[in-house]
Computed example of a mutant assay.
Amino acid sequence: MAERTESSIDIDATPGAVLDVIADFDSYPSWAGEVKKVAVLSEDGDGWADQVEFTLDAGAIKDTYVLDYDWDVTEDGTGVVSWSLVTAQVLKAMNGSYTLHGDGTSTTVTYRLAVDVKIPMLGMLKRKAEKVIIDTALKELKNRVES
């Protein structure tokens, strides 16, 4: 699963404000359309979520899965939030990251994602699905942060 898809978006907010929205998993069902339920299963010593369970309903793909998070971020919110799949029913792999770069007033967020499913699917269709997931997630993140 070496191939991945990535896209970027500029958000009119500081990296810290963007990071706050990314880290607020309990609020995802209110703004991330395909996420129906979220439960933080464990946190590290600094209060960052370590493992998070998501219930997803993305039309053809419905799944409940657990992601393991790594927070390589600085005090101002810049850096990388990455995740990897721990368990799932339909997904075989889901590795991704948000990279946040900011100038103090705005933030560029780059989202990288590689997904694999247990059912057979052409690589081209997987990349197209990843692109839709990424573009939707970035737009929803931007709308949430800037609202």
Rank of each mutant, 00 (worst) to 15 (best):
L19I: 03
T108W: 01
V66F: 09
V73D: 05
V38M: 01
I134C: 14
L19R: 00
D24W: 04
E130M: 06
I133M: 13
R4H: 11
W48I: 00
T87Q: 13
I22N: 02
I133P: 04
R127P: 06
K139T: 14
Y69Q: 11
T107D: 01
W71F: 05
L91K: 13
P15A: 03
D46E: 13
S42V: 06
K92S: 14
A23F: 09
V90Q: 15
L125G: 07
A49H: 09
K126S: 09
L41M: 06
D68C: 08
D57G: 11
S82N: 08
V38I: 07
P120W: 07
D50E: 15
L41G: 06
S147C: 06
V86R: 14
S8N: 08
D72G: 11
I9H: 01
V117W: 08
M94F: 07
V66N: 08
P29M: 10
L113T: 07
E146G: 02
K62L: 07
S147I: 07
V80I: 14
A13V: 02
G79S: 02
E43T: 10
A32M: 13
T74G: 14
W31Y: 14
S27L: 13
R127W: 04
R144A: 06
W83T: 02
T107C: 01
A17K: 11
P15L: 00
L56R: 03
E43F: 00
D26N: 15
F25T: 03
K131V: 10
A137Q: 07
V81K: 00
K37L: 03
V52K: 11
F54V: 07
V66Y: 08
K142M: 02
L19G: 03
A23K: 14
T99S: 13
